[in-house]
C-alpha cells in the first residue's frame, strides 16, 4: 500500500497542491476566483509556459537551455524592426521563428559536435544573444507595431485571448509529439541513457540538435506574443526568463537527470508559479517577497520529488 501512495503522490501530488492553493487563495481574497482574474493568470502564464515547453524537451534529454531569454529578445527585436519597416506580418513572424530555431541549432551543434556541456554552451549563447540584441537596438526600444501583428497578443476568439489559444496549441501538439512519435520516444531514451541510445542505433546528435532548435523556436514564439501584447520590444526583454522556465519544468516534476517527466507536469508547474505570484499580489505582499516565496516553492518541490524517489541514485 505504501508503494501505491507514493505513486499516487507522484502522479497527482502537484495537482493537489494546485487545488489546495486555489482553495486557500479564494478564501483569502474574493477577487481570486473571478473570471477576469483567472483569465489574467492564464494569459500571464502563456509566455513562460511556451518557453517551458521547449525547456521540458531539453531537460528530458538531461540538458539545460540558459539562452532562451536571449533568443526571445533577439528574435523579437529583429522582427519588431522589420515590421516597423513595413515587411508583411507573416514574413516577420517567420523570420523570428527561423532565427530562434537557428540559434537553437547553434546551441545543439556546439553541444553535440563540440562536446561542450549544455550549461556552458547555452550560457555562451545567453551572453552572445543579449549582446547582439543590445547592438541591434542601440539600447532603444521599438514601439508602435502594426495592428495586424498585434492581433497575436490582443485578439480573442469566443472570449479566449489569442495567447492562451496559442499556448494551448503548443502544449497539445508537443505533448502528442512526445507521447506518440518516434522523436518523442527517442527524447526520453536519450535522456535516460545516451550510451545505450547510441548503441541502439539512435542518431543521438540529430535528436539533441532538434531539441535545442525546438527550444529556440518556442522562445521566439513567446517573444512574438510578448511584444504583440506590449506593443514594444525592449532590448532587455526576456531577461531571466530561463529561470522561470526551468522553475516551471522542475516544479512540474521533470528530472534533471533526464528521461523522466511530462508536459502536463510542466503545465501545472507553470500555472502553480503564476497563481502563486497572482495570489501574493492580491494579498498585497511586496513583490520582493514574491521572489523569495518562488524560490522556496521550487526547493520544496525538489525535496518532495526526492523524498518520493529515494531509490534513485
Amino acid at each position: 500500500m505504501k508503494l501505491n501512495w507514493s505513486l499516487f503522490l507522484q502522479r497527482f501530488g502537484l495537482a493537489l497542491v494546485y487545488v489546495a492553493l486555489a482553495v486557500a487563495l479564494s478564501l483569502l481574497s474574493n477577487r481570486f476566483l473571478t473570471l477576469s482574474n483567472q483569465v489574467n493568470i492564464f494569459r500571464q502564464a502563456t509566455i513562460n509556459g511556451i518557453v517551458a515547453v521547449g525547456m521540458t524537451l531539453v531537460i528530458l534529454t538531461a540538458g539545460i537551455d540558459l539562452s532562451v531569454g536571449s533568443i526571445l529578445a533577439l528574435s523579437a527585436v529583429v522582427t519588431a524592426d522589420l515590421l516597423k519597416q513595413g515587411v508583411p506580418v507573416p514574413f516577420g513572424v517567420l523570420v523570428a521563428l527561423a532565427l530562434g530555431a537557428l540559434m537553437g541549432m547553434v546551441n545543439g551543434l556546439i553541444i553535440t559536435r563540440g562536446k561542450i556541456p549544455p550549461f556552458i554552451a547555452t550560457l555562451g549563447m545567453l551572453t552572445v544573444g543579449r549582446g547582439l540584441t543590445l547592438m541591434y537596438t542601440q539600447g532603444k526600444p521599438f514601439t508602435g507595431l502594426p495592428e495586424a501583428f498585434r492581433w497575436l497578443g490582443t485578439s480573442s476568439v469566443m472570449g479566449i485571448p489569442m495567447p492562451i489559444i496559442l499556448a494551448a496549441l503548443v502544449f497539445a501538439v508537443t505533448a502528442i509529439v512526445l507521447r506518440r512519435t518516434r522523436f518523442g520516444e527517442y527524447v526520453y531514451l536519450i535522456g535516460d541513457n545516451p550510451t545505450a541510445a547510441h548503441m541502439a542505433g539512435i542518431n543521438t546528435r540529430q535528436i539533441i540538435v532538434l531539441v535545442y532548435m525546438i527550444s529556440g523556436l518556442c522562445a521566439a514564439l513567446a517573444g512574438l506574443i510578448l511584444i504583440a501584447r506590449l506593443d514594444s520590444a525592449q532590448p532587455v526583454i526576456g531577461s531571466g526568463y530561463e529561470f522561470s522556465a526551468i522553475a516551471a519544468v522542475v516544479v512540474g516534476g521533470t528530472s534533471f537527470s533526464g528521461g523522466e517527466g511530462t508536459l502536463f507536469g510542466t503545465l501545472l508547474g507553470t500555472l502553480l508559479i503564476e497563481t502563486l505570484g497572482n495570489g501574493l499580489n492580491l494579498l498585497n505582499v511586496s513583490p520582493l517577497w514574491e521572489q523569495v516565496v518562488k524560490g522556496v516553492v521550487i526547493a520544496l518541490a525538489l525535496l518532495f520529488y526526492q523524498a518520493l524517489n529515494p531509490s534513485k541514485k
Binding site: 526520453y188 531514451l189 535516460d192 541513457n193 550510451t195 545505450a196 548503441m199 541502439a200 542505433g201 528521461g259
Partner: peptide, 19 residues
C-alpha cells in the same frame, strides 16, 4: 550501462529498434 534505459518501460526498451 550500455543497453538498458532503466527508467523507461519494458515496451520502449524491447521495441526501440522497431520504432
Amino acid at each position: 550501462v550500455q543497453s538498458l534505459f532503466l527508467g523507461q518501460s519494458v515496451r520502449s526498451n524491447a521495441s526501440v529498434l522497431l520504432f
